[in-house]
Nucleic acid binder design. Sequence first.
RNA 1: GGUUGGGUGACUGAGCGGUCAAAAGUAACGGUCUGUAAAACCGUCGGGCUACGCCCUACGAAGGUUCGAAUCCUUCCCCAACCA
Length: 396
Amino acid sequence: MKHFNVLHTDKRARAGRLKTAHGEIQTPVFMPVATLGTVKAVSQEDLKTIETECLLSNTYHLYLQPGLDTLEELGGLHKFMRHPGPILTDSGGYQVYSMSNLRKITDEGVRFQSHIDGSSHFFTPESVIDYQARIGSDIRTFLDVCVENPATHEAAAEALKKTKAWAERAGKHFRATTAGVDEKLKPLMFGIIQGATFPDLRRESALHMAETVNPDGFAVGGLSVGESKNQMHDTLALVTETLPKEKPVYFMGLGSPEDIWEAVGNGADMFDCILPTQNARNGQVLTSQGRFYIKNAPYKRDDSPIDPNCDCYVCKNYSRAYLSHLFKTKELLMNQLLSVHNLRFLINQTKIMREAIKNGNFAEKKKDFLDSYYRDTPRPERDKVRLVPKSNTSED
RNA sequence: GGUUGGGUGACUGAGCGGUCAAAAGUAACGGUCUGUAAAACCGUCGGGCUACGCCCUACGAAGGUUCGAAUCCUUCCCCAACCA
């Protein structure tokens, strides 16, 4: 049974449908991030209201808390969090990257030191597949090795070598452990493509994944980690050109609206990102006319909604002035309201994209979006590289 | 009326002879964040410059001591507590 159908194309942009055990996903899709089995500050009711199609959760974090025994006893993640829709789980590969001071990589797997209590845990490509089975996610990903940017070709090649070997092991294990499962209930496995920003490595990774591992979908990892926008988009374009066209492409960790427009134009179908929720908690909101900080002076007495063009319940019922007040007074409701809005904004963008692809005017709609989004602010430099490490970001 | 303790930048509050345009926190102003170790973090924060330095104006007010005072002395004005 074919789990993914490309319904419409407009140049390289595609609109499609992905079937999972917990329902269909229309693509392009934005998946809110529920690392610990919750989209931070957002309720299940909210997720439904904003028309969430798929959630992303995290193997590493769920493994530590509440623990897989607990999760399994309570019927898996869907039942535990009462989420009826599809869930994709990240393998923990991102934690290999972001918690580099707490882990050690060997050919066999990754030894983590828990960030909670310091206890030691060993993840292998196979065990991570088993963990995701216990979580019960619909889309499961392989353990990979993501390198920081900038990386030397040597380091990226070394990481890719492990990623490839691990993908083969994980794919084999996945097939062996899901062999008898009914097609309709069968989870999907997504392989992760690495190779930093080196074209030869990216091509090698994509070809290897497609030809040797042949997963249900392709995740593009190791991007949006500090490289320039040009590098990021060029790398994606090269990967989608290399990959077969009949399977979904998931750009891991991409979440600013302008980037998603660009990436959909380059053939990506699925996205997840902490940005809309994390930025919401830090007071930044997205609108069709650009993004801004709700806490900033101009909004203190602004009685208008965050985005007059948004259909979310926050924009219909709350003013900028009130939300600004909530932020400044550290009222917890702010986290929920701004998160709901930002998520709904991105989901609405994907709906506009699908419609545009169907109508064959994607480029035009993309231009409309960007013209409006950058109406009052200069467009960012596309070749600018993030120089400061993740843990020490600042700008003056 | 007396005694004692105080009056420091928007606020709270350190400093108690030079290294003080003055700690720290708050507020204010601006920003960062892309498969979440984040309801986190980072700047700026008296004014003016021919700015990695210089010049003004500043620690209740006015005098004074000193090479030099937010810091010591005198007087005055406020504030708090207590005593009449």
